[in-house]
Design a protein around this nucleic acid. Sequence first.
DNA 1: GATGTCACG
DNA 2: GACGTACGTGACATCA
Length: 950
Amino acid sequence: MSDKKHLYLVDGSAYIFRAYHRLPPLTNPEGTPVGAVYGYTTMLWKLAEDLDKANGPTHLAVILDKSSHSFRNDIYPEYKANRPPPPEDLLPQFPLIRDATRAFSLPCIEEQGLEADDLIASYARAATARGWDVTIVSSDKDLMQLVGRCGETGGCIDMLDTMKNARIGIPEVEEKFGVPPEKVGDVLALMGDSVDNIPGIYGVGPKTATKLIQDYGDLAGALDAAAGMKTSKLKERLIEQREMAELSRVLVTLKEDCDLPLPLDDFLLDGVPPEPLAAFLETHGFSSLLRRLGAGSGSPDRPNDLNPAKKANVGANAAAGSSQPVPDQRVPEMPAIDRSAYICVTDMATLEQWIERAFALREVAVDTETSALDAMQAQLVGISLGLGPNDACYIPLAHGGHDLLSDKPQQIDRAAALAALKPLLESDAVIKIGQNIKYDLNVLARYGVDIAPVDDTMIISFDLDAGRSLDGIGGGHGMDELSVRHLGHTPLTFKEVCGTGKKAISFGEVPLDRATQYAAEDADVTWRLYQHLKPRLVTEGGTRIYERVDRPLIPVVAGMEREGIKVDRASLAKLSKEFAAEIGSLEKQIHTIADCEFTIGSPKQLGDVLFEKMGYKGGRKGKSGQYSTDQAMLEKLDEQGAPIATKVLEWRQLSKLKSTYTDALQAAINPATGRVHTSYSLVGAQTGRLSSTDPNLQNIPIRTALGRQIRESFVAEPGNVLLAADYSQIELRLAAHMADVPALKDAFAAGQDIHSRTAEELFGTVDRETRAQAKTINFAILYGISRWGLAGRLGVEPDQAQAMIDTYFQRFPGIQRYIVATLETVREKGYSETLFGRKTWFPRINSKNPNERQGSERAAINAPIQGTSADIIKRAMVRMLPALREASLGHVRMLLQVHDELVFELPEGDVEAAKPVIESVMANAARPAIILDVPLGIEIGSGPSWGAAH
DNA sequence: GATGTCACG
DNA sequence: GACGTACGTGACATCA
């Protein structure tokens, strides 16, 4: 490669005026006009892409006009005096030009009292003096004087008009002016410039000026020759206005000896760091560029991609009824899966070769095989790597029966293999692709390996296809399902390899040939899925949510799972005992009242006892023909004066608390850590919420005094406290913003109690009763309302419920509009979207079955709100630990997420310092991508237990 | 494995 | 004019 330096000098100020007039008046999510900024950004993008290309820039700087005053005004006050002020919607874009430049990590030069042209001339001269080539990115005719000029060591100057994509060299300048570049100043001095208010000779335009310079050599020659010309208007003017022409010559001459504010070497172009750029693109809604940033390459942008409302629906099937993902044609043909091609790596030299190839390819599919499902307890048994179709291996590390030491197959020592793999798995330069890689993250973290950076096919699938399923075709994101759906291939199942039920063996006992087929196939399939799914993020608009929300969340959630939370086993045991006694007593009482012994926990038997034997009135239900015995029904019976109903309700509550919580949580304590480690699913809820399993720590009781005792068993380590931070009414706040409801927005802005305000609007009066009704209605709105549903909840007639709904729509204009608009979009496109661009598909939205259809409609009304809330808390989680660390609060640990709440454990002494940091991160989590019309209220409490922290 | 119930946001 | 009623989850017990 040539080491010839090539400096690009971008005439930023001139560019945005042109971009402003050429591009449509786009605005960013905040409403700020950004059309010219968008044009400017795409131009920088293109220039930066030329880095490393032949004759592309090695150095680059943007030069801007700092002020309207320069030395030219001192010699000629009228200079640029008749310029109209910039258009109103261009003004706010000037500072954004600097932001954009900073976002690209490019130097931006501007100096008081100097025009951009002078700085450009000075830099160009300095660079050519060092033998560099220079390209001036501009189409300003004044700068054409510089073209072609060479320094002593041979550097050349040309210009680049990025809008016309045209190079301007000496021939182009001569074509335009009829003279070589060094005479352009003479022509300009004669013809003047009405835009800059350079006088020139009145009546002399480009044609005459060119002719005069061609005929007489230069300005002085032309002016001197005037005396000898034959009498004419031109002769008169040349003589009369000689001074003006000479002044003009000075004005158009570029000052080439300015002090250089930054040395040339500082302009070295060394790639564009993605981080500040991504934030900038996101802030201004430049989503197509953002997608390209995520993808590394992509199709050219169209400016109308900017407006989210007009976002192109590329690659998505518009008809919701047929919204199965289409096979992706751009994925190159791959050979069929061939399990016999997989390698079993049992010696260090071969392992080193795989590692070396992975480094070279910069992306590797990784899968760990373990002895159990629980990432916090499982032993690592082997690792598989995938580098291409059928190019996969399995590295067994702990195979062989525990009691058959002599039969242990040949394999690399686990510690040695991990030591060799660690640099690869932790290298910034190599993407580790996994299917649910959070699991592998947690397993390997326990062996001292912190996998990063990662991509996850399961989560990519979720971000593309959440909710997309049809009859008989699963909508899940598990590997076997994805493999069938996208690759048409059914992988070996775990059951086929390890057996099932009592005969099941652990993976470490599987013979190596069989283990290799299974494990390497997983890596192969994961690698292939990645080739299919990753490009779809770009074409289907999933990059924003994947790159900015879900992908960065993976290591954060993995960390939370590894932290776990301490539960007080003794107090849970005590509760279990108390509950057991009470359950036994209730059981006897119930059997006495019923006058027979039956299984209370069996809804079937209970229904028969209540409605057949005891003769209470109630309805059958569902296809099973079984009596309903749920809480609502038992409460009705209780009102009818059925003493058994209350007892059953109490029994149910205690049984639930004991089996699901006080017993199960004790069993869930990890013997090694002494804490409870849940597992969060990032693809569990179609709306984008997390879900929690094994155990579920997102449904720990709080609503009743009895249940709250369980929450009090979640405690901090000695010297520490638990801190709980909740978003207050976040979904209603988002509804107020998204549906643009003035009354609700006012109420939140003023910090009013939102249900009281609703009661005031609906009923004109606030008391306990109307507030409770208003609260019910508020939730009904969020969940997609029906008059029957509301009537059922409020205990009124459907007509009355409808009247309340009508009043609600009237008092809160915007809500109905939101509902109608949301449903229209979902019917047309097949999916809903959150404020951050997360899609949820509703394949049954146009179903002929009214039950199905209306169910989808209610879910579709709710999904953007619930999903936006999920996006916001996820963004907060991603930022939380870095923010705390920056505030020297590195000992604060984030433990749990419960949809609108985060739970932390921290030293008691850190509480007061941590509160404002946590509050700020949560309250500002939507920014800068979205500026909400309502504040996000945060409630924070702390105490020795989770219960006490509320 | 399906069903009913109930814990949470 | 009908759905048989609110959105989103996961765990447990019972029963076929």
